[in-house]
Design a protein around this nucleic acid. Structure first.
Lengths: 191, 191
DNA sequence: CGCCGAGTTGAACTGAATCAAGAAACGTGG
DNA sequence: CCACGTTTCTTGATTCAGTTCAACTCGGCG
């Protein structure tokens, strides 16, 4: 149990130097849980009340487009995850968050996080740095995507999430890349 | 001159309540300049040292893909702009930032901003909230894009940046949407 | 007036989607 | 531990949205 939280503390510590008091407060606020593959952390049309950190396993966000399940992002362990737009604005989510493997999850509520921000300037800074990193990553990934062929997208995916094909369904990966499952299957074949 | 900075202060004030001291500090740090259409604020392969705020005019970020000029984002007045990935990481930029109209720009350096963050907790919070908003926006825009037809993308653009077609070249808009100029021309025709 | 950049139009081509079917892999209960 | 149903993945044939290439129009400006 302690080991799980330590993983999170270490992660935060790589971004900002935490003092003992704020470490204490984080541990105090966090809740640890295990869930099976397929467990839904956040449902569409509901407000994302919690921020999750995956210590083991993986997850994805997805929504429905013309009745089809479209993966919008994938998250391996060692990452924060939630429906970001919903969590930051505290309005209903347009996407679902689902575990793609059996996973161990640490979580804390929106209110708890705001309280940490308020009490500990270091956490406020951490909050900023964390979002900055996400923005940089999203920016890089999507802007490049625009003029890539299906094969180039797949190669970018592999270099960004190396072991993803072993852990997530082909169909989910295909929709994440914005291509059809059949096309992805063919690409993977002749490689 | 004062009026320009007031525009910025007002903008920041909509996100966090600023006290007199931090307002003072912002005004102190900021520099106001006017530039012609086509002026390049940030060059590819250089580190983005400054954060810009457009009080009048508009700008775009772009990069070269297979020798072709590809617009990666557009910014009307009342927005912060820089090469975000470069600015946040202080590493060389992969994109250029260029004014698409004659514009009035307020700017401050990376160091000045970090100093404001350090000195004024309210500014630290502002920094976080500003990035959060950007992330939410980028997330919403790009994730939706993935399975849209050319026409749907154009309609999303129009609803997001209503007067953009009057202010930015057709070719720049087309590459921003990830479609060819010819296709965009045809879409616009039969509407 | 003639040039030049920006936008339009037409025709041919193509990468990837769709439709349709079958093959593997997976897991659950008898 | 095997059988059967379900889900996931592959393969083939056809279709289509959007690209590419090429020529042409239009408006502004030196």
């Amino acid at each position: 149990m302690i080991a799980q939280t330590q993983f999170l503390i270490d992660y935060i510590n790589t971004k900002v130097q935490l003092d003992a008091a704020s470490k204490e407060a984080i541990i105090e606020a966090c809740q640890i849980q295990e869930f099976n593959k397929g467990y839904v952390l956040i449902k569409e049309d509901k407000v994302a009340h919690r921020l999750f950190f995956i210590t083991q396993g993986s997850a994805r966000t997805f929504y429905y487009h013309d009745g089809k399940d479209v993966t919008s992002w994938i998250y391996p362990e060692g990452q924060f995850i939630t429906s970001w737009s919903s969590f930051y604005t505290q309005t209903p989510s347009y996407e679902n968050v689902e575990l793609t493997e059996e996973s161990t999850i640490i979580s804390l509520s929106y209110e708890q996080l705001q309280e940490l921000y308020k009490q500990y300037p270091k956490m406020q800074k951490f909050g900023r740095v964390m979002v900055e990193e996400q923005l940089v990553f999203l920016d890089y990934f999507y802007k490049g995507f625009m003029f890539m062929t299906a094969r180039e997208k797949y190669e970018l995916l592999l270099s960004t999430f190396p072991d993803v094909t072993q852990r997530i369904n082909l169909g989910h990966i295909a929709s994440f890349l914005g291509i059809s499952q059949e096309t992805l299957s063919r690409i993977r074949k002749k490689k």
